[in-house]
Amino acid sequence: MSEERYTLNKQLAQMLKGGVIMDVTTPQQAKIAEEAGACAVMALERIPADIRAAGGVSRMSDPKMIKGIQEAVSIPVMAKCRIGHFVEAQILEAIEIDYIDESEVLSPADDIHHINKRQFKVPFVCGAKDLGEALRRINEGASMIRTKGEPGTGDVVQAVRHMRKMNSGISKVISMREDELFEEAKQLAVPYELVAYVHENGRLPVVNFAAGGVATPADAALMMQLGAEGVFVGSGIFKSGNPQKRAEAIVQAVTNYQDSRLIAELSEDLGEAMVGINEQEIELLMAERGK
């Protein structure tokens, strides 16, 4: 990937800021998401809650299904490939996907290496639990980061934990003396230049969204108040009682995340939220995939 292409890919993420990216499994769901105000959709065959329930190996979606969603909406379309599965990524690039999510939601194809994302022209978003993971993914060529959270649970606790860890990692780097950054780069297992960027700019070099467990307008606003620049909502919308209404409410809550009176109104009469699984009840921790 040329430097110019990488810049353009980071800039597309800038355009998504303040928005909600929704998981969809059919063209109809994609249209509902677009009408409700999604700034992009994530096309996948099964939402994380169903992947969790079904078990087994989870792979990239059928390209035909993804193309159907690309034809249904005018907003950017993202799709997931398995961690380390660069051929799945090549396929997604061939069908001109707008963003690839190298995602822990799917079964990893490589338990050591992530994809060399620098070799691709299309942009990548990757999950991270802390600053080190985020900078390692950026070093591999990711042009956007999201917290991992714990997908398909409807439990926001892990997204909160990961966002707070990211923030405290950034605060620590900001407060360091310049001569301490070299050791910090060694500890985080990332290049010095990325640590120096965080030290100078007080933020990641790419846009950072929240993901994994967001189910209500309040969850979305919580993540925004914690510093997320936008939110991914996976199972939370189409696993709920009234997807359209919930989607619209989450979009407005992200735009006005500091207006508690509006969020109170938005939280009324949303129907049933997704059932959810508590942290202690989870058998498979997807966030532990790919570090």
Binding site: M15, L16, G37
Partner: peptide
């Protein structure tokens, strides 16, 4: 600003 016009247009009306 730049962004998604479908989102911005909807938010202008909803808000």
């Amino acid at each position: 600003p730049g962004g998604e016009s479908t989102v911005q247009g909807k938010m202008l009306r909803d808000l």
